[in-house]
Design a protein around this nucleic acid. Sequence first.
RNA 1: GCGAGAGUGGCGGAAUGGGCAGACGCACUGGAUUUAGGAUCCAGCGGCUUCGGCUGUGGGGGUUCAAGUCCCCCCUCUCGCACCA
Length: 838
Amino acid sequence: MTQEQYSPQRVEAKWQARWRSQKTFDVGSRGDGPKYYVLEMFPYPSGNIHMGHVRNYSIGDVVARCKRMHGFNVLHPMGWDAFGLPAENAAIQRRTHPAKWTYSNIANMRAQLQRLGYSYDWSREIATCRPEYYRFEQVFFLRLLEKGLVYRKKAPQNWCPSCHTVLANEQVVDGLCWRCDSRVEQKDLTQWFLRITAYGDELLNDLALLEGGWPDRVITMQRNWIGKSTGASVTFGLEKSIADVSGIEVFTTRPDTLFGVTFMTLAPEHPLVEDIIAGYDKAGEVRAFVERVRAMDRLERQTDTLKKEGVFTGAYVVHPFSGMRVPLWLGNFVLADYGTGAVMGVPAHDQRDFDFARQYGLPVRVVICPEGKSLDPDDMDAAFTGDGRMVNSGHFDGMGNVPGKQAVAEALEKAGRGKAAIQFRLRDWNISRQRYWGAPIPVVYCEKCGMVPEKEENLPVILPLDVKTRDDGRSPLPETASFVNCFCPCCGEPARRETDTMDTFVESSWYFARYTDARRTDAPFSADALKYWLPVDQYIGGVEHAILHLLYARFFTKVLRDLGFFPLDIAEPFAHLLTQGMVLKDGCKMSKSRGNVVDPTAMMDKYGADTVRLFCLFAAPPERDFDWSDSGIEGASRFLGRVWRLFFEEKDRLLPLKACGAASADACSVDARELRRKEHLSVKKTGEDMARFQFNTAIAAVMELVNAMYLAREKLWHSETERRVFSSAMATALTLLFPVAPHICEELWERLGHARPLADEPWPQWDPAATARDMLTVALQVNGKLRGTVETPADVDRAALESAALNDPAVLRHTAGMTVRRVVVVPGKLVNIVASQA
RNA sequence: GCGAGAGUGGCGGAAUGGGCAGACGCACUGGAUUUAGGAUCCAGCGGCUUCGGCUGUGGGGGUUCAAGUCCCCCCUCUCGCACCA
């Protein structure tokens, strides 16, 4: 028998061309059915796709194709997160322009994605570096400015000396730059901030809406990052008078311990330090301490092992209720940028304060006692942080400390010395970047009018492409006269344009919405399209964005809603989130320096796209990391070869049926009925596994079906019905495998004689009657141990089953000389005989 | 330290509500085919075994007729947070 050789490259090129020319996956041309929006995190156009992309996008493509087969109107777009530093650095290295580099990378990577046969609606493709895209970001910026949600502030900032730019707090990981791992320095700079803290509560509370849809750990990470603490602010009067300053404010989560305060500690950076130590005879020592702490960088200062140190300032504050004098210290553990940069010290009830007090001989004052006990400060070897009764606390004595928290806060408010307060760990988002390849911030600086927003009708402020790039990595914008020199939108006089650009995370905070009407030019979105498509039903990407991108996008969704761009009933952008694991090689992350990179295009050259997709999905469940295996992909390739060969070896006898097209196999052999049963079970299992994103087991179910067909093929040609059973199994296998390996399935489907492509076929229905069995294998246990099996008719009654079990030779052997105490029958599954020595 | 997740053959991994542990694949072994190699097809494949069995899901207890699965204690690994007042 001559048979055609399987050439994946030829088959894949054919179907990719057809899908493109027929716009198969353009959602605009298909308007029926309920909507489903599946989105994968868009790539940074670094030059070439890597296996991580292939895995991410293969998962998304299976979801998209499955949903489509289930009758959904599926939006599945793709685009480019195209601004950013690597383009600039690469351009410097290659003596080219970031734009040129970026656009050529996009062209290259688009071709690579198309070679993988993903079902994207390419008509909605976006690139964030195009003015048609970022112009709307500038519109958002101006509206946010109007609302006070974006502001400029001078403050110590995270500065990456190697990237020559500031970083947001979220972009500093263990004191290092998230991108290049350089040590981040602190630098005083005037920067633009987005007031994400104004949404702290909503970002925190709405995490509840994501329970069940997002992985718990991502929700937890966001909750921790936002870091809400409830407590009170308290103002301690300053004994010494400083102009305009009446006292020092602290934040505490334990107002119930207020009477236990025996000292106060300020951050060395606290703005009042100089005023406080003025005139103190040991001011020099204090200054030396401040200098020493300041010299340490963030990383050093935040390690656990750092010795807690402090210095007395010579000054005292006054307790708001007791009027007691409280010594004022500086401490290296107090953070300047959390709370008020000042902490009240309650050594009896806070371990850190306890250690500090013992180290410097400060008094310990017990104000909470465990129920029915008393505490002696001299006997304590650790702080008591549990609940109990308030003591030594004036008229609060005897009160439980839990209600005491509120009571003290109320009393503070009445006395004008404080109030209930909430603190967030979350800081405002610094979006200024001192780099060139980003979206310009649309404001100008005028000598007369100061900072003036650009007029909306003048947008976009276009990033000039004809700049002289600098070798040192600094932005060329400040030296680009044609960009910098402008006229004040307010008075018309000459002015200077802002030369900082926006953090690229701003672009990725709203791109998912732009896809809903990507070609629109007069507005960023259209209300109808947003209302129809949002939220994204399934979002898929790496867990490395658990805080950064996913928090920013949530924030933007709420902001754009409040600015009137988004529908009011959209609270969250991504209803379901799948965080896929990494593709490793030899247990390590793939990297050029390690030399363990597996190139997807080389794999496609060798095995074809279908095999690469199949292996990425089959190797492990999607959330888990998996190790690339050269023999593993061989196995995937072998399986597709097996499908291809089976098809051509049996082709002359195959009928052009649809999936599950054999109505019944009643009058047929056992083999035919078994194959039909396997076919329907495969439809059930594959469907269920796809729905819960267990692609590895879904594929295993199709493999089982193919294996069953190999074993049955010589036996099933006796009758027309048997021929139909076999043909139907083939059609079903192709249909079930289609979302994973679409090209080969389309090709064989067409060769089976179908005019309508598989892409337009519905997901098959399985028939419970076809999965039923006349004979069942029932496990026989004695005292819980498997001793044998027995074949029984499916409708056997309990008594018959029980007696069959008791008379089974293996059972008899194991119950010899014993008394049967009990027989447990699980219908259709097993019989367990409980027996013991007589 | 706190929080989350994980630990199953030589390997990747199955077992969705406690019910025949190891599906599917890789590697390996044997057979068929082949001039040969490769490819392909078929079969075997947790460990021990006196071939009757015994034992086995990180370790130890427990619940149950029955535990990878439920409960308690412990160990290891991965990830996240880490002076947050």
